[in-house]
Design a protein around this nucleic acid. Structure first.
Lengths: 108, 108
DNA sequence: CTTTGGTTTCAAGGGGTGTTGAAATATATC
DNA sequence: GATATATTTCAACACCCCTTGAAACCAAAG
């Protein structure tokens, strides 16, 4: 992910509803969650959830696929990892105090 | 850093000028850089740089202190690390693919 | 083919954000 | 005190984002 993509990812994650959606999707794992289930989980109306899901998809933080009547969303784990990696490598990698934020996360 | 703080940090980092400022400040290390030096480094007018620096300070990503006529800004390394840690721990810690983004960053 | 369920689109509005250049503030120098 | 330097504040403007509720769309079931 380049600077433009990272800026878009940060912008997308700077909204409480969207951050909650990402949290739900990461917790849900590879199976993902339907738009309706997400809307209920984060306490948003269907149209509001759809609005924010479209924003997350545009920022490439989630993917979607249709099953019957439902649209299933999944976290894009690679893209989220790439975003963090860009931020750490390109902006902050050389700083030990920032790098230390990853300590305690287990064996990496 | 809590959710509110992380949202503010993401919002602040979602602007190209501010992301460049943070990059400059992290590269500059503990000595920091003056407002004028930063403005020139990122190609912004003094008032524009001041506007974005105030935003970064409000998000607690940078600190400032006055020396003579100059105002010196420094990256808040602890806060930046705390932001990443919150995002990783609270949102994504349990996911191996995201966690893998920190591989290749050297010994942690 | 009509109906039901799931999701998205749309228009309206209210509010926040970024840019610009001029003016104000504060500090040092002459 | 007057002047130059460094930074911030201010007003104006344009633009984008978020919310809401209604309408439209699309796929399945009756």
């Amino acid at each position: 992910m380049d600077e433009t993509g990272t800026l878009a990812a940060f912008a997308s994650l700077s909204n409480a509803t969207r951050l909650r959606i990402v949290r739900e999707l990461v917790a849900a794992g590879p199976d993902g969650l339907s738009a309706g289930a997400l809307a209920e989980a984060v306490g948003a109306s269907p149209s509001r959830a759809s609005f924010h899901l479209a924003n997350l998809a545009k920022a490439r933080l989630v993917t979607s696929s249709q099953f019957a009547r439902q649209v299933v969303y999944r976290a894009d784990f690679e893209a989220i990892g790439a975003m963090i990696r860009f931020f750490m490598d390109d902006c902050c990698a050389k700083n030990a105090r920032i790098r230390a934020c990853c300590s305690g996360m287990g064996r990496i």
